[in-house]
């Protein structure tokens, strides 16, 4: 029986290289997520501002990322910036820039939604109990706002992790690219390599994203009161 090829996974440095590729993927995702969450809170607050101009510009910013696919944005920054400013940006930097911008916009929407959904009477009850401005925020508003934000935020993080798979299109050596390289090397010896390598990467992504989505669901149900 012909070599099924699963051994290609264990040959040489395949696993190590896949792991280093995974690290690239993970670091892009992680950095972007952190930036997005921090800046997103700011944007969220901006979107509740009284100025119509501020509100609408922020909404426009979000819509730009909701209508144009992320891959197109990656192209715009990768090719466009290089052409316009004669800069040679590394794909990883481009990825972090685009993902951070996208994540910030989405996070801003989530934060805005959480803030707007806080019931008025919570503030009134808090005042009735004698809480001052800071106390109100610390004990009443922020805990409630965080609860409403968390499921959406985790969902966003999961989506960002999945979207990192796109970076292979702008030349980043991420886990997918490494997989492709391994396949190219071993395709003659192990024809079924693509099945196993892509299968493994498939499972890797699942192992990262599934716990996140379960966590989000659990939190949602726990706080559903």
């Amino acid at each position: 029986m012909q070599n099924l090829g699963i051994s290609v996974l264990f040959e040489g440095t395949a696993l190590q290289r896949l792991f280093s590729g995974l690290l690239v993927t993970a670091s892009i995702a992680f950095i972007s997520i952190v930036i997005a969450f921090v800046l997103g809170i700011g944007v969220g607050l901006l979107r509740t501002s009284n100025s119509k101009v501020i509100r609408y510009s922020c909404k426009l910013y979000l819509e730009m990322f909701r209508i144009i696919p992320i891959l197109v944005w990656l192209f715009i920054v990768f090719f466009g910036v290089t052409a316009a400013f004669d800069l040679d940006l590394d794909g990883k930097v481009v990825a972090v820039i685009v993902f951070s911008l996208w994540g910030t916009a989405e996070m801003g929407d989530i934060v805005r939604g959480a803030l707007e959904s806080l019931p008025r009477h919570q503030i009134e009850s808090g005042k009735a109990l004698g809480l001052n401005f800071w106390g109100l925020y610390k004990y009443v508003l922020i805990p409630q706002a965080v609860r409403r934000m968390l499921p959406g935020a985790i969902n966003l993080a999961t989506r960002m992790v999945k979207t990192t798979s796109l970076v292979v299109m702008i030349g980043v050596i991420d886990v997918v690219k490494v997989g492709q390289q391994i396949i190219e090397r071993s395709i003659l010896k192990a024809p079924a390599a693509p099945l196993w390598i892509y299968g493994l990467i498939f499972i890797l992504y699942f192992l990262i994203c599934y716990p996140l989505s379960r966590l989000s669901k659990k939190l949602e149900m726990k706080w559903e009161q």
């Binding site: 798979s165 693509p194 299968g199 992504y205 989505s213």
Partner: peptide, 16 residues
């Protein structure tokens, strides 16, 4: 829902 489309496509196109 927990895997990217890119990988799904690679799997379908190159793996299957």
């Amino acid at each position: 829902r927990n895997t990217p489309l890119l990988i799904q496509l690679f799997f379908l196109y190159y793996g299957l």
